[in-house]
Design a protein around this nucleic acid. Sequence first.
DNA 1: TTTATTTACGTAAACGTTTGCAGTGAATAA
DNA 2: TTATTCACTGCAAACGTTTACGTAAATAAA
Lengths: 345, 345
Amino acid sequence: MKSVNLKRLAQELNLSVATVSRALNDRYDISQATKDRVRELAAKLNYEPNPYASSLRRQRSGTIGVVVPEIANHFFSLAINGIEEVARLNHYHVLIYLTHEDYQRELDIVRLLAGGRVDGVLLSAASTSYTDTHLEMLRERGIPLVFFDRVHQAPDNAQITTDDYESGYKATRHLLDVGCRSVAHLTIAPTLSISRRRMQGYIDALLDGGLRYDPSLVLHAQGRREQDVEMIQDLLHQRPGVDGIFAAVESLAVGTYEACRVLNRRIPHDVRVIGFSNLEIAALLDPPLTTITQPAYAIGKEAAKVLFKAVLKNVPVSSGHSLELKSELFIRESTFPAPKLVKSA
Amino acid sequence: MKSVNLKRLAQELNLSVATVSRALNDRYDISQATKDRVRELAAKLNYEPNPYASSLRRQRSGTIGVVVPEIANHFFSLAINGIEEVARLNHYHVLIYLTHEDYQRELDIVRLLAGGRVDGVLLSAASTSYTDTHLEMLRERGIPLVFFDRVHQAPDNAQITTDDYESGYKATRHLLDVGCRSVAHLTIAPTLSISRRRMQGYIDALLDGGLRYDPSLVLHAQGRREQDVEMIQDLLHQRPGVDGIFAAVESLAVGTYEACRVLNRRIPHDVRVIGFSNLEIAALLDPPLTTITQPAYAIGKEAAKVLFKAVLKNVPVSSGHSLELKSELFIRESTFPAPKLVKSA
DNA sequence: TTTATTTACGTAAACGTTTGCAGTGAATAA
DNA sequence: TTATTCACTGCAAACGTTTACGTAAATAAA
């Protein structure tokens, strides 16, 4: 019940607490003989240093904080996987916080973290409105911050993202290539830079393809599953000419499938669908979904690497450390050109 | 850069550190006037108490540890979601650790946690071999532990599980009901109690259904995606008579779909498939997958609740606090009886 | 020999809180 | 008047580490 500490070890070995501490930390000014003695007893008694005492003394927590909108989401759980990997290699611990897309909650969390609980923060922004006061708090306290995926347009922050503009362009372009003439775009909060960049890619691809950009074909979802599906249904119903849909996030691609099922629209015969997604089973959907897939695991890993560079060297991160990874297009049946399908159907 | 602490506040207010601390903690023996003064300045200076000093002094970390085999998995991410919810309500922080199904890693993690970093632990066991030495470490240190889903047969531990036996029975029974005569079972490590219980349900349902239990129809997967799919292919190939498959974990249900695709076996025409799964999009698969779905979110929530009861009241958890939640059967096309399908195909 | 250097360890302060105890001045009771 | 209570506040120790500094003994240099 009573945990063994340095004092206990010191008494039992007839040494001072300082010597024991130094022996365990493998300091140069302790003889090999005592180091061995100390370590042996420590192992025998299952000694584990008290992390809070240690963190208090060296002003360093050995912990990073990860703040994400949600966790039941393939992208984020894969990213966290990558983050955890890097943290473990650096003997660091990982605190997880969920904002549930709520800016206020994000603010509260960051305030807490700025209190010194962590040595660094990885953050993927909530979709609701934004000021960057809380980021200032971290900066004031000298706590490095690296954004990943959902970044915030702060003056000089490191951020790990994907080529959202190019991806948006590529996705839209692909729809045009397979014959779509009226492409809708489903996205989330326009305050998010990823949304804006994906959408800009969408717009530019339309224009380059000789189509005009029709804002009424852009649907901003709320993130509430059922309501979003209804909105998609409404869109498909009111604009029967829509023959292609580009979903900027996975949940909206899935929502499109559901809406199409309800409305009896055939994919890809009536409408072709492409979506950002990290679903491993996209290929097993009915029909297999064409996806733009982000390297989620790599994003988490790289973001953590950049953060640790700053944390361990005790230097601030800057936009110079930013990275943009490439996402990949997987073409599947949901965007097959119509003619082929008509035959086999 | 320099963080504001109690001393700073005390100086600025001409009070002692003790008074400031008590004022912020809303102690009864501080006048309302000083409380107001203190709080005002604290808010103005953005004071956040140093969590490590605080944790060191009161022997309490305000943190729980969550240990799971993996996170890129619907069940676990949903469970973590539930856990985080409860933790947040209790103003607790959540440390995440991944074992990647590696027992040695689980051991190392528990050893760390037993060092006092957390006030309690939620654990879902890795699938590899098992002794319960590390659980003893937690018990010795008086750190409550609650298992969820993947429990370990420790003498007197609290555990939150689902009705695995009944679920296994129900799933198998369902396959028999729709006409299967040769049902294979895909599962993971037999050391895990969930595996054993699900399998026992499978066996009993077979016997009750007048079939015999054939161990060669049980496949123990390794958790390596590609190899698992190959094993499933081999099974289907060598035992062409198999007309039903019960997958004890989601990945194996998905693997079955892939194997069937490679071998050109039609689901459900040639073989019917049911699997444990928390995929929200099971209904969108080709064909829609019949699932046994665990209340993952609720499991996380309940496990956390039980843990906090122990943590906050400072009492040990015991098996008396264990809970068994019910999983649900969602019947979809992958287990439709053959005749119907022959027509529409 | 004396003096400088190295080796190995101890002393004590510090990190920022919390809290038992004591103390103060004022108000009330005896 | 004195004693007692009450409402506040301060002093100082404690939590378990880490580390700057000091020091004694042993060795090297003079």
